[in-house]
Measured scan of single mutants.
Amino acid sequence: PQVPQCKALYAYDAQDTDELSFNANDIIDIIKEDPSGWWTGRLRGKQGLFPNNYVTKI
């Protein structure tokens, strides 16, 4: 099955070790969508939390 993905609308710099940094237009694999607004994703071999208001699902 296809892994859900999202595209970064803005760059995000991780504020903690469990967060994921990314650049605008990066494509992130979505591991888990949480109602809190912090999703778990994977990018370039690293997994971490990121704010879903920085991305749009594709």
Rank of each mutant, 00 (worst) to 15 (best):
Q2A: 11
A24S: 11
T56G: 07
L43I: 15
E33Y: 04
F50Q: 00
G37D: 05
R42S: 09
Q15M: 13
I30V: 15
D13S: 09
V55G: 00
Y54C: 12
I31H: 05
E33Q: 15
Q15W: 05
V55F: 03
A14F: 02
D34E: 15
C6K: 00
D26H: 00
L43K: 04
P51A: 06
Q47F: 09
N23Q: 14
T40D: 05
Y54P: 02
Y10K: 13
R44Q: 12
K57A: 06
A14S: 09
T17R: 11
V55R: 00
R42Y: 05
E33M: 14
P51K: 09
D18L: 12
N23T: 14
L49C: 14
D26Y: 02
I58T: 04
I27V: 12
Q5K: 12
D13K: 08
L20N: 02
Q47G: 04
Q5P: 02
P51R: 14
L43T: 11
T40I: 13
L9V: 10
D29S: 09
G37M: 04
A11Y: 11
T56C: 12
I31R: 03
N23W: 05
D13A: 10
G48C: 04
I58A: 07
Q5W: 07
I30A: 02
K57V: 07
L9S: 06
I30M: 04
S21Y: 02
D26N: 03
D13F: 06
D18K: 11
G37F: 02
D18V: 07
E19F: 11
Q15G: 10
D26L: 01
N53Q: 12
I31D: 05
E19Y: 15
P35F: 06
N52Y: 08
V3A: 15
N25Q: 13
D29E: 12
P35C: 12
N53Y: 08
W39R: 01
L49S: 14
E19R: 09
T17Y: 08
D29V: 06
Y54F: 08
P51V: 00
I27W: 04
K46W: 03
S36D: 13
V55M: 04
I30N: 01
G37R: 03
K46E: 09
E19S: 10
D34N: 14
I31V: 13
L20F: 01
N53C: 14
P51T: 00
A24T: 14
L9Q: 07
K46Y: 05
S21K: 07
Q15E: 08
N52V: 12
G41L: 04
E33N: 03
F50T: 00
P35T: 14
C6Q: 01
D18F: 08
E19N: 07
L43F: 14
S36G: 13
P1T: 15
Y12C: 00
V3F: 07
R44G: 10
F22N: 02
F22V: 04
D26K: 00
